[in-house]
Amino acid sequence: MAAYIIRRLIQTALILLGISFVTFILLYLVPADPARQIAGRSATAETVENIREQLGLNLPFYEQYLRYLASLLQGDFGRSYLQKTEVSTLIAARLPASLLLMAGAIACELAFGLAMGIVAALRRGSHTDNALMITSFIGVSAPQFVIGILLLYVFAVKLGWFPIGGYGTFVHLVLPSVTLGFLGAGWYSRMMRSSLIDVLRQDYVRTARATGLSRAKVLFRHAMPNAILPIVAMIGIDIGLFMSGIVVVESVFGWPGIGQLAWQAIQRVDIPIIMGVTLVSACAIVLGNLLADLVTPLIDPRIKLR
């Protein structure tokens, strides 16, 4: 166990190193000259050269990368070209809103996804099952921005139940969470269904039924703990979907998180911010996968770590 955790941590550290390298190469490839962008249009050649010197842009490739890595390790993601603020400060200020939105989305997708999956598995082959599975297909095929605008149109503009956008109270959280969780709910319901169908076929479930336990008790006490395992591993992958999704959802709802920060940076081609958000997201995904790997054996003692 300890050996596995150590190996997994080393692997994670290597992947994080790789991520920093890929991000650096992408930054390196950007055609715009950061020194010129920082100096402004009216700067003299000398000023630009001074800034280049300061930023270390004249150094050889590997030295630039080492400097970049060293500053990353100190939590320095560089400065925004246009806002003249530290990228790490901007991201730190926006992160809580995004985390809140993701928590809301996880709640939505677990509630909808698991409920749909369980009902479909229990009523396997029925019209209810078919209808639920078509719904889940729509969930994974629907573009998030269209779902977001549709929910806004129906529930905010026409019915007036929720505010059109903004941030602060629980009612502001509902529509963005549902939009972000819609895709995941589709995946969860399909996984829950096939996993539960597999478990319900097993002998121990039949035995439990034969001892005279009620259907509900067999389902929730005996079948579900096993059926839910693949879902736990999914949450790691989920974080990746969320990190893409928040850019769209936050721009539709005007939610002040890192997705909106990235979206505004796209409009102004503010590369350091886009790279910072990408870096933070990639780290979140790697750590999410690590967490899922480490948590699974705690829930399921049959899984041996090697």
Binding site: I15, G18, I19, V22, G240, L241, M243, S244, G245, V247, V248, A262, I274, V277, T278, S281, A282, I285, V286
Partner: peptide, 8 residues
């Protein structure tokens, strides 16, 4: 490459 969110 899997660690990078596709859209970003």
């Amino acid at each position: 490459m899997m660690a990078f969110p596709a859209l970003l």
